[in-house]
């Protein structure tokens, strides 16, 4: 579904390289976790896949269902089924959650030749999705992320994911800012949304999320590259040992380069 080939990316116009040759392959039905210390390039990776204009791909390629998406605008990538749950969801004052989601849902539906929903149909549709993340219906009429607590914002991202039904979801530190109950609710929601036809990439610092959402593969990213890949037990090992022992691994690779 998603294949990153020797992906290099830098901050547009500043020449600071952040991704230094990432290789990754994600197939349908899989859950991948990308872990790593602060500043290793995990969040950048998710933004680059989603097409953030702040970053420029200088080398390598991003293949989605076998085709390069480098030339596609962010909205076109969204139409193709790529969803990014933001680490810091953006506030849009004066625009209600319902308004945004109906626009999103219908635009994506239209681009895929699916039927659009009128306001009443849509109302029924989202109310049903609310229960998935145990959110209060009042919340639909509030402005997007405006005045939301950190936890509400994160929950809202997963709610949007439930409404839009993407095929590839990149969840950027969705667990941070959630208390233990919210973490369980959000994780349950993600597990229910996941099936054989979609894939999830979790970006996280902590192993605790992976107690709730069991990954098929765990990757460790350090200094712009994936330095180690393993099964779910790798996460536990990291929890115990930290990243130091891998940083040396990265340095060795760095010198060998």
């Amino acid at each position: 579904m998603l294949e990153l080939k020797n992906l290099h990316a830098e901050v547009e116009g500043e020449g600071i390289e952040i991704l230094k040759g990432v290789n990754l392959k994600v197939s349908k039905g899989e859950i991948h976790a990308i872990m790593g210390p602060n500043g290793s390039g995990k969040s950048t990776l998710s933004k680059v896949v989603a097409g953030h204009p702040h970053y420029e791909v200088t080398k390598g390629d991003i293949l989605y269902n076998g085709e390069s998406i480098l030339e596609m605008d962010p909205d076109e990538r969204a139409h193709a089924g790529i969803f990014l749950a933001f680490q810091y969801p953006v506030e849009v004052p004066g625009v209600t959650n319902t308004t945004l989601l109906r626009e999103s849902y219908n635009t994506i539906a239209a681009s895929r030749g699916r039927e659009e929903l009128d306001p009443l149909e849509f109302d029924d549709y989202i109310k049903e999705k609310l229960s998935l993340v145990e959110m209060n219906p009042d919340f639909l009429e509030r402005s997007v992320n405006t005045g939301f607590s950190g936890g509400e914002k994160k929950r809202n991202e997963i709610f949007q994911m439930a409404v839009l039904q993407p095929t590839l979801s990149l969840l950027d530190e969705t667990d941070s800012g959630l208390d233990i109950d919210a973490l369980r609710i959000v994780s349950d929601g993600i597990n229910k949304l996941h099936g054989d036809h979609d894939a999830i990439v979790l970006i996280t610092h902590y192993q605790r999320l992976l107690n709730y959402i069991i990954p098929d593969h765990v990757h460790v990213m350090i200094n712009g590259r994936i330095v180690k890949t393993g099964g779910k037990e790798l996460a536990l090992e990291l929890e115990e040992k930290g990243y130091d022992w891998l940083e040396s691994l990265e340095t060795v690779n760095g010198e060998a380069k």
């Binding site: 989603a50 953030h52 969204a78 969803f83 933001f86 849009v92 945004l100 626009e103 635009t107």
Partner: peptide, 19 residues
């Protein structure tokens, strides 16, 4: 802000209108 809305499938011009 625009990227956020574009990521939700909304075109750049529509994103600005919405904001």
């Amino acid at each position: 802000q625009i990227f956020y809305l574009q990521q939700r499938g909304i075109s750049e011009d529509d994103a600005i209108s919405l904001i």
